[in-house]
Write a protein that binds this DNA or RNA. Sequence first.
DNA 1: TTCTTATATTGCTAGGTAGCAATGTAATTA
DNA 2: TAATTACATTGCTACCTAGCAATATAAGAA
Lengths: 119, 119
Amino acid sequence: MRRPKRELSDVALHMIAHRFKVLAEPMRLKILHALWDGERTVGDLVAATNALQANISKHLGVLQQAGLVSRRKEGVNVYYRICDETVFELCEVVCASLHDRLATQLGELPPVTPERKRA
Amino acid sequence: MRRPKRELSDVALHMIAHRFKVLAEPMRLKILHALWDGERTVGDLVAATNALQANISKHLGVLQQAGLVSRRKEGVNVYYRICDETVFELCEVVCASLHDRLATQLGELPPVTPERKRA
DNA sequence: TTCTTATATTGCTAGGTAGCAATGTAATTA
DNA sequence: TAATTACATTGCTACCTAGCAATATAAGAA
């Protein structure tokens, strides 16, 4: 059962939209994915994403500002980790929805005759 | 328990990011909110959002393209409704996360002496 | 101190898009 | 037919931001 409809102020709408906006960049998702099972240094993330270090730092700043990741400095390295568990839930819900959508679209196409498959 | 980390292609990352991007506009969230408990005409949505009709139509196009809403034409009117229930779940998860975050930040501030409240 | 390594910051440019205004289109009514 | 209503589309502009390049900062090593 869904929650009842709540009133939403413009400020609330902007906050919700901003959270989605932070998640709306492939590179930031890639970073979060690299942080999926634990903390990583900036260098680790640069290697995992094939992006320039400056861009990774900027994306990490956005993620931290949004409260999705946190930093821990150790010597010359900085370790980042996901500190908002809803990140996982949101990504999984979206993945499931996209999966359903594509499966439905696939079912709406005419079937492929076997001999033409991978022609 | 969280799902194990899955491999994610760049295409998958872009699809997920795009879904978040569709939800990352306050006006689209306002439209979805107006559709929360049932279908509405474009005119209804224009009235509910105080936006120009052209913009509402464009936003509805984006939402429909993303598979979040569907159209039904009846005479001269067009009724839109939410056709992907994950929209509700996503918004509620984000709201809960934001609520937690703000509550935590509030707890980190020094308490307010009563006589200075609403000075 | 100087050098190097790791990370952050700044200035810039190109691409995307929300909102506006105007126009197009389809259904209904006169 | 013409006029009206409801919605969609197009062209435009202003704003935002991702990525790049260069520079800055900070910590450890020499």
